[in-house]
Amino acid sequence: MGGNFSRTVVRKAVRPIKNINIDERAQKAVAKHKVKPVAAPLHPTTKDIIERQVAEHPEIKEEMEKQDPSLIDRVNTLHVDMVEKMPQIRSVQRPLPQSREHIEDPLLALEEPRKIPKGKISFRQFGTILDKHSGEPKLHQAEVVAKEYELDLQDTINLLKYFEKIKLEDLGEVVDVKEFGAKWTYDPNKEKKPKLT
């Protein structure tokens, strides 16, 4: 206990002394290691071509090294005016949604949208339409459904033609799935849950 306490006190006492003039010391350390930028090395074939050209025509090297005063004057007289203002970036601080409402049907696990645009339906409405149509197809035809939910008639016809709810059928058979590797049998006449064997 005493050793930990004394180490903590010493660390806290030494920390301000360590941090004195830390910015200047960091800049000196960086300046020591600063290396003058060097151009990337040329590919050997390119290097040979340039050396051969410079050897054959020494005036090329002089031309490359001298500065052209007319170009420097042009650069100095260059002035760029901005016509448009730069767009300002605004950060919109919108609060996060704080809805803690209970979802009515936990099996769907979807929140019903508050506003549904014309010509669209929600997932729950989709299920209701399929239920009504499968129960009484003559009463809930495509024209009636399209008018009730303000849908496009062709989309409604395709919806009722190509979609239907999954039906669970109990055939009343004893299912023995041991041959598939399972360790249970199911007899719908005797019990409600599968019995482990």
Rank of each mutant, 00 (worst) to 15 (best):
G181Y: 10
P194C: 07
V174P: 01
L159A: 02
D155V: 04
V174C: 11
T8W: 01
G181W: 10
R94E: 13
E169P: 00
G181T: 12
A26R: 13
A146Y: 03
L130H: 05
A109D: 15
D155K: 15
M82A: 08
R74G: 10
H33L: 14
A39C: 05
I17P: 00
R52E: 13
V92C: 03
K36A: 12
D176W: 06
T197G: 06
K161S: 09
K192I: 08
H102A: 06
R52C: 08
N76L: 14
V54S: 02
M82Q: 10
K28A: 02
V38Y: 02
Q125N: 09
M64I: 14
E63G: 06
A26N: 09
Y186D: 01
L160W: 00
P69V: 09
E169V: 15
N158H: 13
E101Y: 04
Q67V: 13
D23T: 11
S122Y: 02
E65A: 11
V80L: 15
T45L: 11
G2L: 11
V83I: 14
D176G: 06
N158E: 15
T77S: 14
E51H: 06
P194K: 14
V144L: 14
P41S: 12
R15Q: 13
I89S: 05
V175P: 00
A39Q: 05
L71D: 07
T46W: 00
G127I: 04
S6T: 10
L71C: 04
H140A: 14
E164K: 01
F163D: 03
R15S: 09
E56M: 11
R7W: 02
V145K: 01
L78V: 02
L130D: 01
S99G: 08
L96W: 04
E104G: 03
Q53D: 09
P44E: 12
F126S: 01
K85P: 02
V35S: 10
E51D: 15
V80P: 01
E148G: 02
K18E: 12
H57M: 10
H102I: 14
N189Q: 14
A13K: 14
K132D: 01
E63P: 00
K165M: 11
L153F: 15
E104F: 04
E56P: 00
Y186A: 00
